[in-house]
């Protein structure tokens, strides 16, 4: 059941990305180009998603188990540290270079865009590089 819900959730998310225009990197760059011909549409994507998200987290945040009896796995980190800021800064630069973040990358791959496939492979390499760097850091401690 968990697997089915995850598949459904992924499908809805992907359709949302397609309909909203987030799966069009040219449009995303139009939003990030504040100094040029600015397309503010993506504010409405965030607005719509957060509007429903606030309700869901209000309701879900108080529960100890999900509707299917699964434990609620909420993030526990509270500290605003260097990792958070440096990591987000690096992510933002990559997002601004191509106009693609992880969700739309997977949608572009599914749409059969060759550049989407290349981006996903590079993204996985970046993530693997992160895992390797973490292992290297722990082995030195």
């Amino acid at each position: 059941m968990n697997i089915l819900i995850a598949l459904l959730s992924g499908l809805i998310f992907g359709l949302g990305l397609i309909i909203s225009g987030m799966a069009n990197p040219a449009k995303v760059l139009g939003f990030l180009d504040l100094a040029g011909n600015w397309d503010p549409s993506l504010i409405f994507v965030m607005g719509g998603a957060i509007a429903l998200g606030v309700v869901a987290f209000r309701f879900g945040g108080r529960r100890s188990a999900s509707l299917l009896g699964q434990p609620m796995q909420m993030p526990t980190a509270k500290q605003i540290d260097q990792r958070l800021v440096v990591g987000s800064a690096i992510f933002g630069v990559g997002w601004g270079l191509a106009g693609i973040c992880p969700g739309p990358a997977l949608v572009l791959l599914g749409a059969g865009a060759v550049k989407g496939v290349v981006f996903v492979l590079a993204l996985l390499a970046g993530m693997a590089l992160f895992e390797a760097s973490q292992r290297w850091l722990t082995s030195r401690r």
Binding site: I90, G92, G94, I100, P102, V118, A122, L123, L124, G126
Partner: peptide, 8 residues
């Protein structure tokens, strides 16, 4: 861009 997005 992909590597930066993945790592970051």
């Amino acid at each position: 861009a992909g590597v930066l997005v993945g790592f970051g």
